[in-house]
Design a protein around this nucleic acid. Structure first.
Length: 455
DNA sequence: ACTGAGCGA
C-alpha cells in the first residue's frame, strides 16, 4: 500500500503559497484543499488514494475529534503546486467516497471570509436528476464557484433545491438574471439570492398592508388620540382602541390607513416610541392565524437553538449497574465538569433500565468524560458512554444504514446457498443486506430495520 | 420536506 507522507508544507507566502484569490480580494491557500461532506468512515488512506490519482500529494488528513477519534467529516489535501490543486478540485469535486459525494474547496481558514453570505444563491424546483456536478456545471459559466451543493436526504436523493456560493456578487447577480425562470430538464427553476429564514420573513412582511396594530397603550389613550398621532402620516379611515364590556381599554387598537405607503411610514416612525411612559409596539395587523403561525415558528426556532447549543454536551450511558441511581451517576461524572442534568432511566415499576443521560455545560467537558469513563468498570460492569443522539439523528443514522443494504442478485452472490433448499426466503428475487450469520429469511432483516425506522 | 455549512498540523 502506498505510504502516506506526513511532512507538512510550510505556511509561507511565495509562488506556491498564499496567492491572491479571484475577484473579491479573498486570499486562498491555493495548494491546500478543504474536503468536506466526508462520510464519517472515510480514512486518510482513502483520501490519499483518491487525490494522488491526479497528482502527487504533499499530505492528507481527515480531521478527528481529539478525545473520541471520531471523524469530523472534513479533511485536507495539500499539493506541491497550485496547478495540481486546481486540477484535483476540478476532477474530484463530488466524487463519492463510501457512497457520499465529497465537496472540495480551497482551504480558507479565516471564518470571516467564509461566512460573508454575499454572492450566495439559492435554486429551487430542480429536477431530482440534477446532481451536485450538474448544478456546478450549469452555474460555473457565470463565475468562480467557491462551493456548491444540492440538498439531499439521508439516502443521497436530491431534495430539489440547492446552493451556489460565488466569489463575487456580480457573478451571482448575473446567474440570477440569466437563469431565474428558465427551464432545466423541463422544470422551471427559481434562482435567487440566498436569504435566511428571518430575512425572508421580513421581506414578506414588507408586503403592502393598510391596517396597523398598536399595543401597550396607556389606559387613558383614546380613539381620538390614535387619530391625531397616526393622522400625521396620512389619511386614516378608522382608529379604534379595543375595550372590554365595561368600556375599559384593553391597551391595544387598530388604525386603518387609506393607503399602504402611509401605513408603512407610520409603523416605521411610531414603533418603539414612548407615549405616557409606555413604549408602543406598532406593526402590521395580522390575522390570528398568521400571528399564531409566527409564534409557533419562533418557539420552534428557540427550541432548535437550545438543542444545537447542547449538541455534544449530553452523554448517553448504558450497561449501568442496577444499584446506580441519579445521585451516584452524578457523582461518577462530576469530576469532568458542570453537570446540568443527570438521569437514570427506569421502567414503570422503578427498576433501572441500566441506561441514563448525563448533560454537561459544554461539549468539551462531555468529550473528556466520554474519553475517561467509556469502558470503565463501575460496580460490576464496564460502562458504555457515547454522545447522546437526538431522536432525529438516530432516525437518520438508521435510515442511512438501511439505505446501504443493497440488493444482492443471486447470480452474482456467492455460489454457496445461504439457505437449505426449501427454506423460507428462497423464492424471492433478491436478498437484502450482507449474508446474515443466522439462517433468518432476509425479509425479516428488512422488516426489522423498517420497524425501527417507524418507531 | 422547499433558503446551508464550512477549515488543521
Amino acid at each position: 500500500m502506498a505510504q502516506i507522507q506526513v511532512q507538512h508544507q510550510a505556511p509561507v507566502s511565495g509562488p506556491n503559497g498564499v496567492a491572491p484569490g479571484a475577484a473579491g480580494g479573498a486570499q486562498f491557500m491555493l495548494t491546500s484543499l478543504y474536503v468536506g461532506d466526508l462520510d464519517v468512515t472515510v480514512t486518510d488512506e482513502q483520501l490519499y488514494q483518491l487525490f494522488s490519482q491526479v497528482a502527487p500529494v504533499a499530505s492528507v488528513r481527515v480531521c478527528r475529534d481529539l478525545a473520541s477519534g471520531r471523524s469530523l467529516g472534513y479533511g485536507y489535501v495539500n499539493y506541491n503546486n497550485l496547478r495540481d490543486a486546481a486540477r484535483a478540485m476540478d476532477l474530484l469535486n463530488f466524487t463519492p467516497l463510501n457512497n457520499k459525494p465529497i465537496r472540495v474547496m480551497y482551504s480558507q481558514r479565516d471564518p470571516s471570509l467564509r461566512k460573508t453570505g454575499t454572492a450566495n444563491i439559492f435554486i429551487k424546483n430542480l429536477d431530482k436528476s440534477i446532481d451536485h456536478k450538474a448544478l456546478h456545471d450549469t452555474f460555473s459559466s457565470f463565475g468562480n464557484i467557491l462551493s456548491c451543493k444540492i440538498s439531499t436526504d439521508s439516502f443521497g436523493q436530491s431534495k430539489g433545491y440547492g446552493f451556489v456560493q460565488f466569489d463575487n456578487e456580480e457573478s451571482a447577480q448575473n446567474a440570477i438574471d440569466k437563469l431565474n425562470g428558465m427551464l432545466i430538464n423541463d422544470k422551471q427553476v427559481y434562482v435567487g439570492h440566498f436569504l435566511r429564514k428571518q430575512e425572508r420573513e421580513t421581506a414578506l412582511n414588507k408586503a403592502k398592508f393598510n391596517n396597523v396594530y398598536v399595543k401597550n397603550l396607556s389606559k387613558s389613550t383614546t380613539d381620538e388620540d390614535l387619530k391625531t398621532i397616526f393622522g400625521e402620516y396620512g389619511e386614516i379611515t378608522s382608529a379604534v382602541v379595543m375595550r372590554d364590556a365595561d368600556g375599559k381599554s384593553k391597551c391595544f387598537g387598530f388604525v386603518n390607513f387609506e393607503n399602504a405607503d402611509d401605513a408603512a411610514k407610520a409603523v416605521e416612525a411610531l414603533n418603539g416610541k414612548k407615549f405616557d411612559d409606555k413604549e408602543w409596539y406598532v406593526g402590521k395587523a395580522q390575522k390570528k392565524s398568521e400571528r399564531e403561525h409566527e409564534l409557533k415558528a419562533q418557539f420552534e426556532q428557540t427550541m432548535k437553538e437550545a438543542a444545537d447549543k447542547s449538541q455534544g454536551a449530553n452523554l448517553y450511558i448504558k450497561n449501568l449497574d442496577d444499584s446506580i441511581g441519579d445521585e451516584t451517576l452524578k457523582e461518577l461524572f462530576s469530576e469532568f465538569g458542570n453537570i446540568t442534568s443527570c438521569k437514570v432511566m427506569r421502567d414503570p415499576s422503578g427498576i433501572s433500565k441500566g441506561s441514563g443521560f448525563v448533560a454537561f455545560s459544554t461539549p468539551e467537558e462531555a468529550s473528556r468524560a466520554l474519553a475517561e469513563m467509556n469502558g470503565k468498570m463501575v460496580v460490576s460492569k464496564p460502562l458504555y458512554v457515547a454522545v447522546a443522539q437526538r431522536k432525529e439523528e438516530r432516525r437518520a443514522r438508521l435510515q442511512a444504514q438501511f439505505s446501504q443494504m443493497r440488493p444482492i442478485i443471486p447470480s452474482v452472490a456467492p455460489r454457496m446457498p445461504m439457505y437449505p433448499a426449501g427454506a423460507p426466503g428462497l423464492g424471492q428475487q433478491f436478498l437484502y443486506g450482507q449474508a446474515p450469520p443466522a439462517m433468518l429469511p432476509p425479509q425479516v432483516i428488512y422488516l426489522e430495520s423498517l420497524s425501527i425506522l417507524l418507531t
